[in-house]
Design a protein around this nucleic acid. Structure first.
Length: 273
DNA sequence: CCTTGAACCTGCGGGC
DNA sequence: TGCCCGCAGGTTCAAG
């Protein structure tokens, strides 16, 4: 489930629970996820308080005492769950963070596309995983003028383009499809063919879709963090994603599916030009 | 330079 | 019931 709205929601929820809490121990149950787990982290984190938890792109960032920041990426299947006692550990519970006076935080990730790393807080923007990231979609530097300039001369299709982190972060497969529907733009359009007006519509659509999803996610953070996250609370809001063959909620046309850059996506052939 | 495709993993649902 | 196949919210790297 981890797209930007989920990560944002998780960060807000975690911050409430863990800000000011003292880590007693970081425990690895395997040596790596997508990348090796940082061997220095358990020593760096033991006895340190968490100062704050926030988000950049799809990374959760945890500032800890001593000037270090933990980077956490949930990949495709990562979840953060509260510990219920070690007897209930799942085979995909890879990292456990124990606290002096708060529930154990467990990083569970069956597919192991997730990432955990640590670096100096002052160097966070230069971290290899973050340094080439484009603007945040909900910040003021992500504008129609920016997107228009970025798309000039680009021949590739717009959907994979807006999913590129160097262009804008946090727009995953679901919200790319939903945003393009909302903006009335066909996912196969050459990026460079978008007019200024269309860029403006697309920026607005991305922002509105993400904000709405964050709002919906906010109501499900408890389920998401405390249980196994099985809920599909936002599915009912999807206009196109996962709706291949179904009727468009606006015009009734049959929703079509296409594969672009290895990712399948849906669109309405009538509403999207 | 740009774009596409494969690779990294496990689990689940559908078809037979 | 069970096996095989395709597919899944992300990112990176190599090849064309």
């Amino acid at each position: 489930m981890p797209e930007l709205p989920e990560v944002e929601t998780v960060c807000r929820g975690l911050d409430k629970v863990y800000q000011g809490q003292t880590i007693t121990k970081v425990e690895y149950r395997r040596p790596n996820l997508r990348l090796p787990l940082p061997p220095q982290l358990p020593k760096l984190a033991a006895g340190k308080k968490i100062e704050k938890i926030y988000r950049r792109a799809k990374y959760a960032l945890l500032d800890i005492q001593g000037g270090n920041t933990i980077l956490l990426h949930l990949g495709m299947s990562g979840r953060l769950v509260f510990g219920k006692g070690e007897r209930h550990l799942d085979k995909h519970d890879h990292v456990l963070v124990h606290f002096k006076n708060a529930p154990t935080l467990i990083f569970n990730d069956p597919r192991r596309f997730g990432v955990l790393d640590v670096c100096k807080t002052t160097k966070i923007a230069d971290h290899a995983l973050l340094k080439n990231m484009g603007p945040e979609p909900l910040e003021k530097d992500f504008t129609a003028a920016y997107l228009y300039a970025a798309t000039r001369g680009k021949k590739g299709p717009i959907k994979p383009f807006i999913m590129t982190n160097a262009v804008v972060v946090g727009v995953g497969n679901i919200y790319a499809a939903e945003s393009l529907f909302k903006a009335g733009i066909k996912p196969t359009r050459a990026s460079g063919s978008l007019t200024k007006t269309e860029c403006s519509k697309l920026v607005k659509a991305i922002q509105e879709v993400l904000k709405a999803a964050i709002k919906a996610g906010g109501s499900s953070i408890r389920d998401y963090v405390q249980t196994d996250g099985t809920v599909g609370y936002f599915h009912s809001q999807f206009m196109v994603y996962g709706r291949k063959g179904a009727a468009c909620k606006i015009c009734g046309s049959t929703i079509k599916e296409i594969v672009q850059a290895g990712r399948s996506g849906c669109y309405c052939p009538k509403c999207q030009k």
